[in-house]
Amino acid sequence: MIGKIGRGFTRLRDGLRKTRNQLGDGVRSIVKGRSSFDEGMWEEIEELLLRSDTGAAVAEEIVDELRLASGRWGKPDAEQVFSQLRESIATRLGGEPVPLQLDGGEGPAVVLVIGVNGAGKTTSIGKLAARLSGEGKRVLVVAGDTYRMAAMEQLAVWADRADVPIVKGKEGADAAAVVWDGLEAGVRRGSDVILVDTAGRLHTKSGLMDELVKVRRVIEKRLPGAPHEVLLVLDGTTGQNAIQQARVFGESLGVTGLVLAKLDGTAKGGVVMAIRRELDVPVKLIGVGEKLEDLQDFDPAAFAEALAPSDATPSEAQE
């Protein structure tokens, strides 16, 4: 495993530094100096988990697992507790990474990007465009957010940075029509991947959700088999509402993967476990920084490793 992690892992680890320190150092300092497993200790560990937005249910379950395991241990040992904690976390994050499905067969692969306002859709598309373009793919971005003021200009700047073409409509234009034009252009140009931006909307607004369903239908109609990915972008600092967002967007639009944006610098990451507990939709990408290369494929094992490293001083051990 260590072989395939490299610079990417370092960035991931740096991005999750806060959560990791919280978990790792936290558990050690809680367990240290205790001669027996008492209620106070379990409570403190539960709080530690809650702090990273695991939600009450996940936190309680993990503590129960620790409690159960503690029967075998005799007396508290920080490393034993920590290694069980890691295992509990790794199990919850899911097994193998699920890569983006970007094989469009004959035509281009279409990626529809959706989410609530301010989650980080446009920025994620910008980064993804740069990455795919860097891998030699012909990328086209479609500015499907015709609602928010200057949203198209924002995407245009990103398209420019990534050096990929963009299809825009007029502000206030019908989003579905702009997307249709975008697909036309993509087919004409022989694009490999078309990234479709959409206006942010709260999942509770049925009218706006219907509009998104229409965009999806238009894509299905123009390119049978598309969209190949429907990515829901979640703000990494969002709390338990993230589950509700994933659920409602999933029901209406058939979300194929999650993008967890803005995970850097915060004490987050736990919400991934909460979502996995409630829904069967994989996290595919995570944003761990502001640089173009900070949008990474989500690797459950690496994420668990970054959250709770097996070694106390992982930087020396791995590089």
């Binding site: 937005d53 600092t237 709390g239 338990q240």
Partner: peptide
């Protein structure tokens, strides 16, 4: 502050 923010609200 985003009304949907989680535990990080306090740190922020």
């Amino acid at each position: 502050v985003d009304g949907m923010i989680g535990q990080d609200s306090v740190n922020v």
